[in-house]
């Protein structure tokens, strides 16, 4: 065992951090949860109404649409970003010429904020301004590409814009991973005559697992907080077709002076994220440390 003095010093040094974590993070989370059980409107009041806000939340069709949308957006966004990012990384890993230029081009969208991304794609997919208007101007009258203004396609429009923006990031992370793979491995598989696709699927991908986890975590964070992209691209419309939970929270928090409902919605978001993370946390930490102890 280490000398006790060191750990006391360490604890002391960490005190400010703990204070910040407990007050600024856990404290505000707890306060948010408390407010969600009250009847607060534009100001917090401590008049408790039990689960009334949650009941209302799940009677509100806009919230239900938001939840459905975030599931569609989340799975499409993360899935497509991973596939596209991986393929781009593999393509760049072929020792091609001007690799640096391509890398910059693919990563470039990531340097733009979601607001800019959203606006650009809004113009592209707006039937009166974008690709549709241009192609029809060339004489192809039947051409239709109106995703930003089409309520059945609006959430996919958001996903397309998101994928365009974030694929480059996945590419950069996975490319770094690919470069870290031992060249001897490739030589060995060549000697054994294993097809290249099989090497990627069975050897390279498992080796890239830490990178993929990193990418998934970063993309998931973007999904949960998806707000600016939607506001810039569709404003949640047409109608309520592309609403997302974060926008529901923001609208109720500010425009509608309904902070109790907003905090109830954000509590549901928090619980869902925790529920999704729980199996992974369990596998990574609790089971692992249990195994170590045994």
């Amino acid at each position: 065992m280490r000398p006790r003095r060191t750990s006391a010093t360490g604890t002391l040094a960490l005190l400010p951090v703990w204070a910040v974590v407990i007050v600024a993070y856990l404290g505000t989370i707890a306060w948010t949860v408390v407010i969600s059980f009250t009847a607060s409107k534009s100001l917090p009041v401590y008049e408790f109404v039990g689960l009334a806000q949650y009941e209302r939340l799940f009677r509100t069709s806009r919230w239900l649409v938001s939840v459905e949308n975030i599931l569609i957006f989340g799975s499409l966004f993360i899935g497509t970003c991973l596939v596209v990012g991986f393929l781009l990384a593999v393509a760049l890993d072929q020792r091609i010429r001007a690799e640096g230029a391509f890398r910059t081009i693919y990563l470039y969208p990531y340097s733009m904020s979601f607001i800019v991304t959203g606006l650009v794609w809004q113009w592209i997919m707006n039937p009166a301004l974008g690709v549709q208007a241009t192609v029809r101007g060339w004489g192809l009258e039947g051409f239709t590409f109106d995703w930003a203004a089409n309520r059945d396609m609006a959430i996919y429009a958001v996903a397309v814009a998101g994928v365009w923006q974030a694929s480059g990031l996945v590419m950069a992370i996975l490319l770094a991973g690919l470069r870290g793979i031992d060249q001897d491995l490739w030589k060995a598989t060549k000697v054994d005559g294993i097809p290249t696709w099989r090497v990627y699927a069975s050897i390279v991908l498992p080796l890239l697992k830490p990178m993929i986890v990193t990418a998934v975590v970063l993309l998931s964070v973007a999904v949960v907080k998806a707000y600016d992209l939607v506001v810039a691209l569709t404003r949640g419309g047409p109608g309520i077709a592309s609403e997302v939970p974060a926008k529901f929270v923001m609208d109720n928090l500010f425009e509608r002076s309904n902070i109790a409902l907003a905090t109830a919605a954000s509590t549901v978001m928090l619980v869902s994220v925790l529920a999704a993370l729980a199996p992974w946390l369990y596998a990574e930490y609790i089971r692992a440390s249990g195994a170590r102890a045994a």
Binding site: K41, T60, G239, D251, R256, N258
Partner: peptide, 19 residues
Amino acid sequence: SSADLVGSTRDVITEFWNT
């Protein structure tokens, strides 16, 4: 009426208009 009610009815109106 409250901002809350205006917002909630507006959700219905805009959904109808666009559907």
